[in-house]
């Protein structure tokens, strides 16, 4: 069965992105459509490999993480752009994250999940999201946050990566025999909840973006 809580919410978010963003003026927002398509594809392939072919899907998630770090970091930085002048930090941190991932994959191999790199990536995303909030607070101009698309996108990202901190820190314990033998897969449940929060926030931000574009075009 390829449809799980994760894949369902990811598919819904992908559909919302297709409806709301396919005519968006910004290429960065339109990038969310192929990215979410890739998320759905990766998730379903991962389930297929694990449940039907009974082979490890770790290499797939390791490969996916390269795209995840590039897209999420780029989009986070895109949201910071109205407030920051230089692009130097974008390239420096992107390069640093790639170096960390390549090094961990090289040392531990493709069949061991790169959880150290994933933790570093989460920390970078959390700090950047918090920095975005700080800039929103500092900004003298008033933003109607309840319908401000970038705010909800960053909020979803912060909830997901901040919430997954404990899972990343205790990754080795969670995949150990003792925990895995529990009647319910705790890490899987946590990620289900986090995914629901993430994709709900993102879907709402896409709807806000759609409404903002429509109200703007009706004014022109």
């Amino acid at each position: 069965m390829l449809l799980t809580v994760n894949t369902t919410i990811e598919l819904i978010c992908f559909l919302v992105a297709c409806i709301c963003l396919h005519r968006d003026n910004s290429a960065a927002w339109r990038l969310m459509i192929p990215y979410l398509a890739l998320v759905c594809l990766t998730e379903m392939t991962g389930i297929y490999l694990s449940k039907h072919l009974h082979v490890s899907n770790t290499w797939l998630y390791n490969a996916y993480q390269y795209i995840e770090l590039t897209v999420i970091w780029s989009f986070l930085y895109f949201n910071l752009k109205p407030y920051v002048k230089t692009n130097n930090w974008y390239y420096i941190i992107l390069a640093a994250l790639w170096v960390i991932f390549v090094t961990e994959t090289y040392i531990r191999g493709w069949f061991v999940f790169a959880n150290i790199s994933a933790s570093v990536m989460s920390v970078v995303f959390i700090i950047t999201s918090l920095y975005y909030f700080l800039l929103v607070i500092r900004d003298e101009a008033y933003l109607q946050l309840s319908v401000h698309a970038p705010f909800w996108w960053v909020s979803g990202t912060l909830l997901y990566y901040f919430g997954s901190t404990a899972s990343n820190v205790f990754f080795d314990f969670l995949v150990s025999g003792a925990i895995m033998s529990l009647p319910f897969p705790v890490r899987y449940i946590v990620f289900n909840i986090l995914n629901v929060l993430l994709y709900c926030c993102w879907s709402y931000s896409f709807i806000c973006r759609y409404r903002q574009r429509n109200s703007f075009s009706s004014l022109v």
Partner: peptide, 8 residues
């Protein structure tokens, strides 16, 4: 995990 979810 709950604390880390409630904080944001």
């Amino acid at each position: 995990t709950i604390i880390f979810l409630i904080a944001p």
